[in-house]
Design a protein around this nucleic acid. Sequence first.
DNA 1: GCCGTTTTCGGCCCGACTGTTTTCAGTCG
Length: 573
Amino acid sequence: MRREIVKTLSNIATLLELKGENSFKIRAYKTGSDIIENFSGDIEQIAKDEKLDEIKGIGKALASKIQEIINTGKLSYYENLKSEFPDSIFELFDISNLGPKKIKNLYDNLKIDSIEKLEASCRSGEISQISGFGEKSVAKILEAIAFRKDNAKFFRTGDIAPIAEIILNLLKKLPQVSQAKIAGSYRRGKEIVHDIDFIVATKSPVEVIDQFTKMVEVDEIISKGKTKSSIRLNNGLQCDLRAVKSSEFPFALSYFTGSKAHNIRMRSLANSNEYTLNEYALIQKNKNEQIPIQNETELYEKLGLTYIPPALREGQGEIEASQNSTLPNLVKIDNLKGTFHNHTTASDGKNSLEEMANAAKDLGLQYLGISDHSKSSVQANGLSADRLLNQIDEVKKYNNNIEDNFKVFSGVECDILKNGNLDYDDSILSQLDYSVASVHSSFSLTEKEMTKRVIKAIENPFVTMIGHLTGRLLLIRKPYDINVSKIIDACAENNTIIEINANPRRLDMDWRWWKHAKDKGVKCSINPDAHKIEHFQFLHFGIKIAQKGWLESSDVVNCLPLGKIEKLLNLKK
DNA sequence: GCCGTTTTCGGCCCGACTGTTTTCAGTCG
């Protein structure tokens, strides 16, 4: 129900934008949607008690609309608004550089109400009839459409993790199922996936598959057979189920976990050991005899390997490392002792400094770095130098009132300005315990300019680490042009840390660079970029990315205990 | 549409960037 309210209010905001309504009215709906989404409490109960308008930001109008949604499951105001535009028009907002005004213009003048029509209009040149759509704009739109097409069949792992775990638990609970696991790229911890593979061990595959296809979330049954089935959920995500015998389970799990490259190596290794390996069994060639295996560890052992964690199964040398016993001892969530890059209500966070700190402490962390936005990030209520200095005092007060086994560090997420300068003078930065330097503007510089810009920040002695290095938003926005290799070299030279931004929309720097960075001696900080206490959970996604980058706890600075991290933070200064 | 020690109207965040309409509108964060 809450999701329904949140979605409805935010869709109303979009539709009002299209209609060119008063921007403050639009904002009221947007913030209303945010408030309901983040509200900690039983919104339906509050509606019942008729106390919705006591929530700050929810006035009489929104309260009665929310009430109507809760009571009737619908909202006539919204239905009426919706009827003015085709449903498909929402997808145009997925194209970057297209906002409400341009979309309205396209719709009014050329009846463009879908991405398909938009693309056709760009290609035919028809679109240039409208003012505001010159050559460069058209090229950008086509690029954005292509980007969306390439990525449309993918989902961010962080977005679909909740539903994946729900389905897994549903399968596990079926009486016919003895084992159930998620395989595929999800299990390998990829940042985006295009489907989810479930493997179950069962004696009654037909019954299990029947249950699988009858789940409430199923929108479409793509295929349904005796041992496997594919469905599409109502969010568009495809899920495959494979039902095997208990004895086949480890083979199926291994095979469907992949990656393809990893599987090829595994099979050829089996071959050279006089075995045949497929998704059901390991067979001794000369005797045509199946080798009984209990779990994946035993399968790896039969092939002369130590167990390879799923995160490493990308065909990046993990087989050789396993043979040579040089596999990394991968960092785990329990190794994290603290975290940097977290926001509070001082800038655009939802929880106060104290709430954030207490939550971190409750999670068993020993320290928390607070890094609100800097002054140039006006949209995020970035802190003026004075406000930042005040926050330093606030942190000191907090630390004075808390036991010695926990500490808050004063930091900032400092904008790297277009010319590579930082958003505060060194005299301000030097008063902080650390800083995260990030790019939030001028994304369109050339690779050369952008690389120079960020390296200038890396060389600043008061920059502790670089935040979300490439600025990418998975499936939404490409990374900006930057020479990551040169950045890594500069970080190695200047003792500057690179973060893994664990927000599931970012997961930046990409795991594909981390093995290289580690070899160069660059340290990592796994940061949730938390804007509220719930976001500390993002650390789980960050850990997966670190694992995919072969990182061990010694590579990750926030695995250091409190005493040692303090020394490290002082090192660069 | 929301809010209120300036309380029933008037203010609400705003600067940078981009392309293009060459003086600014639209988008973005």
